[in-house]
Every structure is written in C-alpha cells, then in structure tokens.
C-alpha cells in the first residue's frame, strides 16, 4: 500500500517491493513461510519437481508442503499435523 514502493531485495515481504514489469519474463520472488506446528507455505514463481526432475501435479499457485510426515497427500499438506500433535519448534 505504500506509495513510495522502490526496488528492494528479492524475497522481502515487508516494506519496499521490487518492481516487476508484466511480461518481463522475470520470476516473482519466492517466499517460504515455516508455519509454526504446520506446513511450509510457498508463494511465488517456483517449480515443484519429483526426484526424477519431472514436475509434480499442482493446481494452485501457493502450496503448503507437508513437514509432519502424516499427510495422505504428500508432498502437500492435508491438515493432518493438527491431529498428530506435530511440533515444529520455534
């Protein structure tokens, strides 16, 4: 919302945001939020690939990746961490 947005470091979520002309071909910065006691939330332009390098099926821009190990939808989160008492540590 700041009117004086100026180019800033890639990945910064606070304050100034890098200017990115549309169709520039540049990727949007990627941010990973380590959600306490929950998944890794990934935003931005990124590729999600399997061990064979093939892109994994993905139906949304922002994804939550399982880090408790209990998801039935791995690599995606399905909310199971809430029922297994998973603690991420802070």
């Amino acid at each position: 919302m700041s009117a004086d947005a100026a180019p800033g470091p890639a990945g910064s979520r606070e304050g100034s945001v890098p200017e990115r002309p549309l169709n520039s071909g540049d990727a949007a910065p990627v941010s990973v939020v380590a959600c306490p006691d929950g998944p890794l939330l990934i935003r931005g332009d990124f590729e999600l690939v399997g061990a064979d390098g093939e892109e994994l099926p993905r139906s949304r821009r922002t994804v939550a990746l399982c880090r408790c190990g209990a998801s039935a939808l791995k690599p995606y989160c399905d909310g199971s961490h809430k029922f297994t008492g998973f603690r991420s540590g802070r």
Binding site: V33, R60, T62, G79
Partner: peptide, 16 residues
C-alpha cells in the same frame, strides 16, 4: 478432494 488440499493452504493464509 479439492478442499482437503486447498483448505490446508487457505487455513494458514487465513489465520496468519
């Protein structure tokens, strides 16, 4: 099935 995956993302965005 769509909601299992979508809302595991949405709940984090919505809460935080």
């Amino acid at each position: 099935d769509e909601h299992v995956e979508a809302d595991a993302v949405h709940e984090q965005i919505a809460g935080r």
